[in-house]
Structure formats: structure tokens, C-alpha cells
């Protein structure tokens, strides 16, 4: 079949999920993870956590494959806007940041506060998700690639007991990946793939129109329970290992996996990121959900193991590409 204009407009994502045997093993073997405390917003007077000179080295375990094995909720957030803004790393300094692409709250800029984000409209399909999600702009032969959308999957990380997952305080800042990296980052906090393919690559693979290029970001699922952010913007959070959070960051929070859909397929691309070369892939999440709305989804979907949403291709089916 000859490609048609429709196919270029294809909107589709789906990192899908899969709980692997690890989940069962974790549930059976590990009773622990005694993080039953309810996470609440720390007082405003709590400052930034100091940088940890010897941070935990764990990287995330990810879900892959069909969805439906564990409880989840999924937010689909079309691309909102771009700009040289980073309210986490460069608050108040427009232009100091490299260019980012934003999803979720329409208000995200260099001086936006959590209140601003919550008061604004959102591109996300859950109206209570006024959080901000962003990643450095992708360039192809020095031309901006406008992303299509991001899906954010919220689940208990593999092996983490689902009831132990706490909600997150408004203002919590999380970063996945290292923007300063110039060589492959290793691990699976960040990586490139085609469509919902299982394997992540450090370098963008050559994709096809029915499974275009995606950047997959998995955010830390353990928090120190005190600081919304840290001096280095990462030390207040960490990844669980084998279903357990480290003692220094004992509070389980949802594992957020964000999959960004770029209209890139076939060969002949020369890709780089606004933050540097292609290995500098990273993403940010700034929690500006409506607090009760977020708590409701965590309680109803994650704690109960219910599949509240699916990312599927029903809504945005590509034109049939069989045989192409």
C-alpha cells in the first residue's frame, strides 16, 4: 500500500505493561516494605535535600508486554508547548534552560508554581492531572521534531506490594535520566524504542510507521518522605530494587513510566536533543495533580490492583499498514 497522509498523522503509543514473574516472586517472598505511612506534603519550610555523594545505583525494573497484569491508571497527554523553561532546575530563569517539550498543565514555564499549574487547563485526558511532564526537544538535522503525545503509566513498580504505594505530595519533583550524559547511560531509566517494543536502546533505532520512535522514561519510585526536591534534583528519590525501597528513601510512590511518541520512522535521520547528544535523554515530572484526584486513583486502581485505564490503539488506529 502506498502511504497516505493519514498515516503520517498516526497518533499512537503503547508501552505496555507486563508484570513478569518478579511480581509474583516479590509478593510471595517479600512481605516487607513496611512503607505503610501515608505520604503527606511536607511543610513549606523544608528546604532542598542535600546532594548525596554516594547515591544508590539502582535503575528501574520495567513492565513490558500486554497490559492487564497489574493495577494501573494511565494518562494520555497530547503535546502542549515548548520553551527554554525548567521550573525545577532553573526556576525563575527563562532562557537558562535548554528547550523542553511540555505535556499536561498548559501553564508550565520558568516561573510557574504548583498553584499555577493546578489552576491551568491540562492537555491530559484526566482533568485532575494538571501535573507537568517534560523532556528536552528532539532535533532532526537541526530541525525541531514536534512530539505527538506522552502516555504516563502509574503502577506499583515490579515487586513492590501494591498496597504499600503512597500518594505523592504536590510539588514533588522527579527526574529520570541524566541530562549531562554524553555516553550511554545504562539501565532502563531512559531509552529509545519503536512503538511499544520491549527492548530499550541507548541510540534511537530505525522504526516503522506503524511503530514510530518513542522515548521511554521511568521515574524513581522511592522517596525520602521529607523533601520535595534536592540540591541536585535527584537525591531525594531513588529506585526500588527487588520490590524494596532503600532505607534512605523508604517511601514507596507510584512508578511513573512516560512514553513520548515522536513522528519519526524510517532511516536518514540525524537526531540530537536540546540537552546535548542523543545519550542525554532525560525527563522531568513535577507533581501538580489535584491531590485528592491523585490519591483517589492510587487508592482505587493501584492498591486494588484494578486496571482503570489502558493505552490501546483502538482510539488512534493507524491506517492499515499490512504488507507495507
Amino acid at each position: 500500500m502506498t502511504p497516505t497522509p493519514h498515516r503520517r498523522l498516526k497518533l499512537r503509543v503503547g508501552v505496555a505493561t507486563s508484570a513478569v514473574v518478579v511480581v509474583i516472586a516479590g509478593l510471595l517472598v517479600m512481605q516487607a516494605n513496611d512503607n505503610s505511612s501515608t505520604a503527606v506534603a511536607p511543610p513549606a519550610t523544608v528546604g532542598l535535600a542535600p546532594a548525596d555523594r554516594t547515591p544508590p545505583t539502582a535503575t528501574p525494573a520495567r513492565y513490558t508486554g500486554p497490559q492487564g497484569r497489574v493495577g494501573q491508571f494511565v494518562v494520555r497527554c497530547p503535546y502542549s508547548h515548548s520553551g527554554p523553561h525548567d521550573p525545577i532546575v532553573h526556576f525563575g530563569h527563562a532562557g537558562r534552560s535548554h528547550r523542553h517539550d511540555f505535556y499536561g498543565s498548559a501553564a508550565t514555564n520558568s516561573t510557574s508554581t504548583i498553584g499555577d499549574l493546578q489552576a491551568a487547563t491540562t492537555t491530559c485526558d484526566k482533568s485532575v492531572d494538571t501535573a507537568a511532564y517534560w523532556q528536552p526537544t528532539l532535533y532532526d538535522h537541526d530541525r525541531v521534531v514536534v512530539p505527538i503525545e506522552a502516555h504516563a503509566y502509574y503502577r506499583a513498580a515490579p515487586g513492590v506490594p501494591k498496597e504499600s504505594v503512597n500518594t505523592m505530595p504536590a510539588g514533588l519533583a522527579l527526574i529520570a535520566g541524566d541530562q549531562t550524559a554524553t555516553t550511554p547511560q545504562g539501565g532502563e531509566a531512559t531509552g529509545w524504542t519503536c512503538g511499544s517494543n520491549t527492548v530499550l536502546s541507548d541510540h534511537p533505532p530505525t522504526c516503522t510507521v506503524d511503530a514510530p520512535l518513542h522515548l521511554v522514561l521511568t521515574f524513581p519510585d522511592c522517596w525520602d518522605g521529607v523533601h520535595l526536591d534536592s540540591v541536585d534534583h535527584t537525591s531525594h528519590a531513588a529506585y526500588s530494587t527487588g520490590g524494596r525501597c532503600p532505607a534512605s528513601r523508604p517511601v514507596s510512590i507510584p512508578q511513573i513510566t512516560v512514553s513520548v511518541d515522536f513522528p519519526i520512522w524510517d532511516s536518514g535521520h540525524d537526531l540530537r536533543l536540546a540537552s546535548g547528544n542523543i545519550y542525554s535523554a532525560h525527563g522531568d515530572f513535577w507533581n501538580a495533580w489535584d491531590p485528592s484526584g491523585l490519591a483517589r486513583e492510587i487508592t482505587g486502581c493501584i492498591h486494588r490492583g484494578a486496571v482503570c485505564d489502558l493505552a490501546s490503539n483502538r482510539e488512534e488506529e493507524a491506517l492499515f499498514s499490512y504488507g507495507s
Binding site: R12, G14, A16, G65, P66, C194, G195, S196, N197, T198, D210, A211, N313, E317, A318, F320, S321, Y322
Partner: peptide
């Protein structure tokens, strides 16, 4: 039924 980007 065609499914693009299938998982299995």
C-alpha cells in the same frame, strides 16, 4: 483485524 505495533 489488523493490530499495529503488537505486543505478541
Amino acid at each position: 483485524f489488523p493490530e499495529d505495533d503488537a505486543n505478541d
